[in-house]
Design a protein around this nucleic acid. Structure first.
Lengths: 358, 358
DNA sequence: CTGAAAGCGCTAACAA
DNA sequence: TTGTTAGCGCTTTCAG
């Protein structure tokens, strides 16, 4: 077995309490004793066992993260942001994916609860009416949603925290950008709404922009994640030359990039025949030619902020428990974190082809 | 505090040992007792505390992962593969990044050791002569390298495991592909060798291919990760029309994509003026136009295999300890795992422009 | 400034 | 089949 505080104490000729004290508040141990202990630690290659510490302390300085997938750069970036911020605050990260399956969310959370993480950051399919979040609430463990955006109309009871961009406004800006260019028939292509409440918000944003401009929204096309197996959707979409959209607004960049690929395969040119706009602003989009126009959301920062908000809640919780104060870990002023978005223009959008329009 | 096995036992009117037994081998408890206990568990919302279990058992069913970054899809995919495989085997994942800084590697490993993970998967800057790996060895904790490729010439002592493609052969295949197309002046662009031993292997592969074809290798250009701040390198590279390369082989796809962007900015057309080939085969490369030619490595599978090899080592270790057998966790037949690579052709490479050649 | 002792939640002998 | 008990590594009163 690995050396424990016990062997160190024995070798140094002191009690385990003294060793522990040296490890935690070095000031409370005499210089010579400290010296002896340090030598023993080095000699034995002792390394404190967090498991013991956690068991005793009742906290783990570990946060759990639950995201749909790491295949989408957006979540990878977010996780990166979380990890960086966590390390800076001396927290560790344990993570799981759900593969976009709502039923996996509960299992993921249960597992993390078993590990006694101090809090969780998660991106769920649908943040409203989510049994998993209710569970978290019952367990009274702090959590912060990332990407999921909570409404202002939160019903009294659960005061939840979220970190995201304003998806609806961001989508609205994107579509307004297209409209500003002269597009009137703008089609939205979206990931499944039931796998992403963000997609739904973005659809509302699309509607807002269309209506604000007095344009008729087109029926949204929902597709499976990242790829359109059948070109049938496009065929149909582009069937009637008089009705075909001049621009496509996609609920995420991967979708936009797949769409561009598929459109090319059908012999259409972007942006000459049709403009394409994405959402997310993933870095590779800016490397393509044409550059993918998109709404940039600060994914890494979303992760970073989510972690900081979470840790704040955790530590407030801890002191509150100590002071027997009310444990409303996440005070009202901290609930909805809306980070800024930015429309990134790019060669994938252009003026609508002349003569095609009404 | 959260309910413990103790409260459950009390409420069910049994001893804690019985509850523990029910949790571990349900068969050893009578039906009616089980029934009572189950009810208490449900009533209290009891959830076993892994911390207690881990402390007692001396293992955590958790693996640690250390990768340079999650900004590069390659590592995100790998981590995804690890997590999926881990979940299937009922292991959890704790992870950290090093930002490509070798000095962070040790800190990351120390942290994970503190958590008493059962094993680690890591991608280090340089797998040969790495102090961090030596530390892991001293601590006698199983670990598997991902992407880092161990040579066949391993010196006797440390029998280490790695999972990767054959970087050298893969790069050689890629360059041979370019040569097959008629290219003779092929320039390699690489990430810093001291941040990635893979890049070095790939450079050897480049040399192999060039020499095999009787061509003169050009001096490699090393650049900072993912981006070329100054276009100066390109200017110089393309300065002399009689000496300029007709093809560029990049040590990774992100680099290739940035290079294409930079070349475009300089007014050069890919592949007409110059062919570009990457390495990694990241999914977005196939969505671009032109499609990025590359060597595809199965990143997610690398993660999956790494995890399986690791768990095998962990469990072999456990039984070995029990049987007081030799603890050579990673037996020779399992050391170097070379997964298949594949050259993906794409529009970013073409025949060299006629008249440009010798 | 230091030590003795209790206990965090759990498992595994050993007894009954 | 069930209970008693010791102890995993650590922190933290409480005494001295």
């Amino acid at each position: 077995m690995r050396p424990s505080i016990k062997q160190v104490a024995h070798l140094a000729g002191v009690s385990i309490a003294t060793v522990s004290r040296l490890l935690n508040k070095p000031g409370s141990v005499s210089a010579e004793t400290a010296e002896k202990i340090h030598r023993s630690i080095a000699e034995l290659g002792f390394r404190p066992n967090f498991t013991g510490r956690n068991l005793r302390a009742g906290n783990s300085r570990t946060v759990g993260v639950v995201v749909p997938t790491l295949s989408n750069t957006v979540f990878a970036q977010c996780l990166q942001g979380i990890e960086l911020a966590a390390r800076a605050l001396d927290y560790s990260v344990m993570f799981t994916t759900t593969e976009y399956l709502p039923e996996e969310e509960t299992a993921a959370v249960e597992l993390l609860l078993g590990h006694r993480v101090d809090g969780m950051i998660l991106t769920v399919a649908d943040a409203s009416a989510n049994a998993t979040l209710d569970l978290l609430e019952r367990e009274r463990i702090p959590f912060v949603l990332a990407y999921n955006q909570l409404g202002t109309d939160q019903t009294a009871a659960p005061a939840r925290a979220s970190v995201s961009v304003d998806n609806r406004a961001a989508a609205c800006d994107a579509v307004a950008h297209l409209i500003g260019l002269g597009h009137r028939r703008i089609q939205m292509l979206s990931g499944r709404f039931n796998a992403s409440d963000r997609a739904m918000q973005r659809y509302y944003g699309y509607l807002d922009a269309m209506r604000a401009a007095g344009l008729a929204p087109m029926a949204v096309i929902e597709v499976e994640r990242h790829t359109l197996t059948a070109a049938a959707d496009y065929q149909q979409m582009m069937a009637d030359p008089r009705q075909r959209p001049t621009a496509l607004f996609c609920s995420n960049d991967l979708l936009a990039m797949s769409a561009m690929r598929d459109l090319r395969a059908l012999g259409m040119k972007v942006p000459n025949d049709i403009s394409v706009m994405g959402f997310d602003g993933i870095p590779v989009g800016a490397l393509m030619e044409p550059v993918l126009a998109s709404v940039v959301q600060p994914s890494e920062q979303i992760g970073e902020v989510a972690l900081r908000v979470l840790v704040e809640a955790i530590e407030r919780n801890a002191s509150a428990a100590a002071a027997a104060a009310p444990d409303l870990a996440l005070s009202a002023s901290w609930l909805r974190h809306i980070l800024p978005h930015a429309v990134r223009s790019g060669g994938s959008v252009a003026l609508p082809a002349t003569g095609v329009d009404c």
